[in-house]
Amino acid sequence: MIDDHIRETIDALGVDVVYAELPEDRDGEYIHHLSLIRLRPGMRRRLHRSVAAHECAHAVFADVPSRFGPRNAKQERRADEWAALRLIDIDDYKLAERIHTGHVDAIALELDVTADIVEAFQRILTRFGDTVYVGARMGAGMWHHRETTDQH
């Protein structure tokens, strides 16, 4: 099952999703010239939702694999970060991080995503003093979410 908001994005882009046998090292792939996401059948729920969101991100950005390794690495990071912003709620993350004292695998289980998605979410957190920004960019007011902790 693909999360509703991810499915809506896939549908809005006019991308088809099929389940097919893939090379052993792949759980999913996006093929831009076909507007197609292929997913490995039979994945467990948290892997399935993480891979579906990741491949949806490739569709959003119209990613095409390159022979240039750094470009591919950038596309993969961006896809994981996009997926993380859509699969992880900041309040759920804060609770899971507190409960599991920062243990990535345990947080991933708690949030029903893969560890890669949790690590991507952690990469986009920027902490300044008592404030944490999610998806901060250069410029005033440029962030996905801002969370301030009370220090009494």
Rank of each mutant, 00 (worst) to 15 (best):
M1H: 02
M1A: 00
M1C: 04
I2R: 04
D3Q: 11
D3I: 07
D3T: 12
D4S: 07
H5K: 13
I6H: 06
D11M: 13
A12S: 13
L13V: 05
L13S: 11
V18E: 04
V18Q: 02
Y19H: 07
Y19C: 00
Y19F: 14
E21F: 01
L22S: 05
L22W: 03
P23T: 10
P23L: 08
D25N: 15
D25G: 10
D25T: 15
G28M: 09
I31D: 01
L34C: 03
L34N: 02
S35N: 12
L36S: 01
I37W: 01
I37T: 00
L39E: 02
G42R: 11
G42K: 08
G42H: 04
M43R: 08
L47V: 08
H48A: 11
H48Q: 11
R49E: 06
R49G: 00
S50K: 03
S50R: 01
S50T: 07
A52E: 04
A53Y: 07
H54T: 01
C56M: 08
A57Y: 02
H58E: 00
A59D: 00
F61N: 05
F61K: 04
D63G: 08
G69S: 13
G69R: 10
G69T: 12
G69I: 07
R71A: 14
R71V: 13
N72S: 07
A73W: 06
K74C: 00
K74Q: 07
Q75I: 01
E76S: 10
E76Q: 07
R77W: 14
R77D: 13
R77H: 14
R78N: 14
A79W: 01
W82P: 00
A84Q: 08
A84F: 07
R86S: 10
I90V: 14
K94Y: 11
K94G: 13
R98H: 10
H100F: 06
T101S: 14
D105G: 14
L109I: 12
L109A: 11
E110S: 13
D112L: 03
D112E: 07
I117T: 04
V118Y: 05
E119V: 00
A120T: 08
F121R: 08
Q122E: 11
R123D: 05
R123Q: 02
L125H: 01
T126L: 09
T126I: 03
T126A: 06
F128T: 15
G129L: 09
V132G: 09
V132T: 14
Y133W: 12
V134P: 02
G135K: 03
G135W: 13
G135N: 11
A136F: 09
A136K: 14
R137P: 00
M138D: 15
M138Y: 15
M138L: 14
M138N: 15
G139Q: 04
G139R: 03
A140K: 15
A140R: 15
A140H: 12
G141I: 05
M142I: 09
H144T: 13
R146D: 00
Q151G: 04
Q151P: 07
H152D: 14
